[in-house]
Write a protein that binds this DNA or RNA. Structure first.
Length: 661
DNA sequence: TATAAGCGGA
């Protein structure tokens, strides 16, 4: 759950006795455009041209005697509060100047709303309250708040909010809250944004659909699934969600791999006569393909077609990819060539994906044809296009053609990247052109080009395969004191090459120097230590990673649970499992099963049983796998009766399970 | 809404 109070934000607020004078005023100096002429407004009526009269007419409900445009112009030329005051003080009721009426509150609010500069709008607000005696007005505050947020002056905005609420005793309305919360969401300050929801409750302002959707989308973007889901259930309790709200929470579910819940929600939508649209299907299909669940993607796609939901570019791209992964090149090809008839123009991603599918199917002729077709049709090719095509030539052992592509792309102004280089180095290595590969690699290293772990490893592998062990060893040795290569890259390569001591040594250096900016470095170290049964080190890396502020994925959690299990530190394992669960981490089945095995290993059969039941009720867990794991836990503890009981349940359930699949 | 490319292959 999200926090329900404001303390996290309090340091941003100004002191509670926030008199307006205590706010920090900082005016943008406008010296260059500053004009001392303060007479512009003096008697606007006499100076008005015909054109101005028409514009004036537009504001007939306002103070007719004052030309708002001229007044604004004059205001925009003030640089200090004193100048501003001298301009506006002519309108003070206390000064009976030539019978001109004081400006009405409504006029002042409109004037404010037309003033985009936060400092000046703030000064006008202060003038209104402190000098001119206007009553505190919420619309006026809303305008200044909006200006402050637009110019990213968060402390000022929060100070204004605090002030209007406590010193001025105004109750914020839905404009106040939606301005504030949507701006905070825009700056990715989710927790701060959420901290205003309880205040809205207290002020009886109902968050609307847009506000909820903004927050749900932000929570998803930050990877905080549990907050997104709890926001959605809160939304559902207060207003009926619209298509956009449904789609945004479907996105959350799909990315978290909760496809069953997503399908449930889709049927809810249909029954609320909000039939799933292109975005709904697109979101789900992309997530399925991302998780390698191609067959499910295929069946969802055919459902989409049968319901006559229009396709879009993403859907086509994702499905061509899925067909390709399933070795269904023919279907991919057919979809590709019918896209235009279905009203979708193929894009560069479509062509690139189709190229890869042809390549995987060893349809080199088709790939080359498509590649040249792109050029004839003037489809903008990019580095991915070239990298894909090079790989295709590489696989058909045409290393000359692959090499030519590097020159061709350069000529067209498409810069090769690390992937281009590792592709070509690998191709040359396989073609026996080790010399050429080494030369390129050397050039890259000395030119200061970005060398990433895969590129470096590619060269090592080329040397090794050519039997040039000494060269390979030298490259590995160089990583102890990397030049032109980041320490993170060095660690990743050493870890992947299985060099435990060297990797550990450089890793320590890199962590101490604060040079580990990428979670994959921690991941490769954890894998390395785990492979080498250095469980204590696995736990250390995990701790370091948490200290560095990185959030582990499911695989890393499984790895660290395994390590603590091997060290018989079951409490620590359980603590991590609980902590991650509370943080809203959505585990893969493997993590749950790992935890269950650990409970078995410490002979906590009570724990095993309650976990088994909990997981059994969870629709996202593979039930067959769960039963097998549980049975295995009992077997290892020599509790064969229990194991048999669990296995018996599988057989009873299996008929149901087929129905679900 | 957010899709495409590199090592290697136990």
């Amino acid at each position: 759950m999200y926090s329900t109070s404001l303390p996290s934000a309090s340091f941003l607020f100004f002191s509670s006795s926030s008199q307006s004078s205590k706010r920090t005023h900082s005016f943008t100096p406008l010296s260059s455009s500053f004009s001392p002429s303060k007479k512009v407004w003096v008697n606007p009526t006499t100076k008005r041209t015909h054109h101005q009269r028409q514009r004036q007419h537009h504001h007939h409900y306002l103070d007719r005697t004052v030309d708002m445009d001229s007044l604004l112009l004059s205001l925009s030329q003030t640089t200090t509060p004193a100048e501003l005051h001298s301009l506006l003080s002519a309108f003070l009721p206390a000064v009976p100047s030539s019978g001109r009426p004081p400006l009405s509150p409504r006029f002042m609010t409109t004037l404010l709303s037309r003033e985009p500069d936060p400092a000046r709008s703030l000064a006008i607000l202060d003038w209104m309250h402190d000098l001119a005696g206007y009553p505190p007005s919420l619309p006026a505050y809303n305008v200044v708040l909006r200006n402050a947020l637009r110019s990213r002056r968060l402390p000022l905005a929060l100070g204004l909010f605090d002030e209007l609420r406590s010193s001025r005793a105004l109750t914020p309305d839905r404009f106040t809250y939606s301005t504030l919360i949507s701006s905070l969401s825009h700056s990715s300050l989710l927790d701060l944004a959420l901290s205003f929801l309880p205040l809205m409750d207290a002020d009886r302002v109902l968050p609307d659909l847009v506000l909820f959707t903004t927050l749900i989308t932000l929570a998803r973007r930050l990877g905080d699934h549990s907050k997104a889901l709890s926001l959605f259930s809160r939304l559902r309790r207060s207003v009926p969600p619209d298509l956009i709200a449904f789609n945004s929470v479907l996105h959350v579910l799909a990315r978290a791999g909760l496809f069953r819940e997503a399908r449930q929600l889709m049927s809810d939508m249909a029954s609320l006569s909000l039939p799933p649209d292109t975005v709904t299907y697109s979101t789900l299909l992309a997530a399925l393909v991302d998780r390698g669940r191609y067959l499910e993607a295929l069946s969802l796609f055919s459902e989409m077609r049968s319901r006559r939901v229009p396709l879009d570019l993403t859907v086509c791209n994702v499905m061509i990819d899925a067909y390709g992964q399933l070795d269904m090149a023919k279907e991919a090809d057919r979809l590709f060539w019918t896209m235009r008839r279905l009203g979708v123009e193929p894009g560069v991603v479509t062509y690139n994906t189709m190229l890869r599918v042809y390549g995987d199917a060893e349809l080199v002729g088709e790939a080359v044809h498509l590649f040249r077709l792109m050029q004839r049709k003037e489809i903008q090719q990019n580095v991915v296009t070239y990298n894909t095509m090079m790989r295709i030539y590489g696989r058909s052992l045409e290393h000359e053609k692959a090499g030519n592509l590097v020159m061709e792309m350069r000529k067209k102004g498409i810069e090769p990247n690390a992937i281009t280089y590792s592709t070509i180095i690998s191709i040359w290595g396989k073609a026996g052109k080790v010399e050429r590969a080494a030369k390129l690699f050397q050039k890259l290293r000395s030119s200061g080009a970005e060398i990433d772990p895969v590129l470096y490893l590619t060269m090592i592998v080329v040397y090794e395969r050519a039997g040039l062990v000494a060269h390979a060893k030298r490259l590995i040795h160089d990583l102890r004191h990397p030049e032109n290569i980041s320490k993170g890259t060095a660690v990743a390569v050493l870890a992947k090459a299985g060099r435990v001591e060297e990797a550990a040594w450089v890793f320590r250096q890199a962590v101490e120097a604060g040079e580990v900016k990428d979670i994959s470095v921690f991941r490769s170290m954890m894998d390395l230590f785990s492979r080498n049964k250095r469980h204590k080190n696995v736990a250390e890396v995990y701790e370091r990673m948490r200290e560095a502020g990185f959030f582990p994925d499911s695989e890393m959690i499984a790895t660290v649970l395994n390590a603590y299990g091997k060290m018989q530190e079951f409490d620590k394992a359980e603590a991590i499992y609980k902590e991650m669960e509370e943080e809203g981490c959505i585990f893969s089945d493997r993590v749950h099963f790992q935890m269950m095995s650990l409970m078995g290993a410490r002979r906590d059969f009570h724990g095993v049983e309650s976990m088994f039941e909990k997981l059994n009720a969870n629709p996202n867990i593979d039930k067959k796998e769960l039963h097998l794991v549980a049975a295995n836990v009992y077997e290892r503890a020599n509790k064969l009766d229990e194991a048999a009981r669990i296995i018996g349940q599988i057989n009873k359930k299996s008929s149901n399970m087929f129905a679900l699949q």
